[in-house]
């Protein structure tokens, strides 16, 4: 696809399901839309809960907010995750492990820095042992403020990420990384 490929793909889905599905009928769409459809409908996030935000992350996965509706389920292994949700403070002692976990994730991968600590150090900016923002060690796609952010905010972040993924050229995303 050309360099201005991104512009050509609009955000509205192009696959059309006919009202009366005829057996053997074909559906026309672009490969990007087809692949992105799978991708944004199954964002598996890694359960990387280090501190307080981890509880709100669990509540978001719980019955009321229910992230499963968006195809987002938690994985405990980085090898199976698309999204690293850094939920909590990262300390110097933990920093190397975060790098390692990020490196173990398959491409394409996304990072959300959840909460003030992961965004910029938050309350613990002045501390001698806290990394002031996880973007000092790994690239971050989205910053989610709050101490801790409400489940609704996290939900919104996931929807926002879905919107981004919908507009992406998937092959570029792999090559860039």
């Amino acid at each position: 696809m050309s360099e201005d490929g991104d512009k050509k793909i609009s955000s509205s889905p192009k696959y059309i399901i006919p009202p009366n599905i005829i057996p053997g009928a074909a559906v026309a769409t672009t490969t990007d839309h087809f692949i992105n459809w799978f991708r944004y409908s199954s964002i598996w996030y890694m359960l990387f809960a280090t501190a307080c935000c981890g509880i709100e992350l669990m509540q978001t996965g719980g019955p009321r907010t229910d992230l499963d509706r968006f195809g987002s389920v938690f994985r405990t292994s980085p090898r199976q995750s698309d999204l690293l949700l850094v939920a909590g403070t990262i300390t110097y002692k933990m920093a190397d492990r975060v790098r390692l976990l990020y490196a173990q994730m398959p491409l394409p991968k996304y990072v959300i820095a959840m909460g003030s600590c992961a965004t910029c150090g938050g309350l613990f900016t002045q501390s001698y042992s806290v990394v002031n923002g996880v973007d000092k060690i790994i690239p971050v796609d989205m910053y989610l403020p709050g101490c801790p952010p409400r489940p609704e905010a996290l939900n919104h972040a996931i929807i926002k990420l879905q919107e981004w993924m919908r507009r992406e050229h998937w092959a570029d995303k792999i090559r860039k990384a």
Binding site: R99, I138, V140, D141, Y143, W164, E168, A177
Partner: peptide, 26 residues
């Protein structure tokens, strides 16, 4: 400590916000 410094860039503009992968990777 291990190449991580405690300072934050001044102002929000200094923090690159984008669709990921643009920052230099350590």
């Amino acid at each position: 400590y291990h190449g991580i410094t405690p300072d934050r860039p001044d102002g929000l503009d200094a923090i690159p916000i984008g669709e990921g992968g643009e920052q230099p990777r350590p």
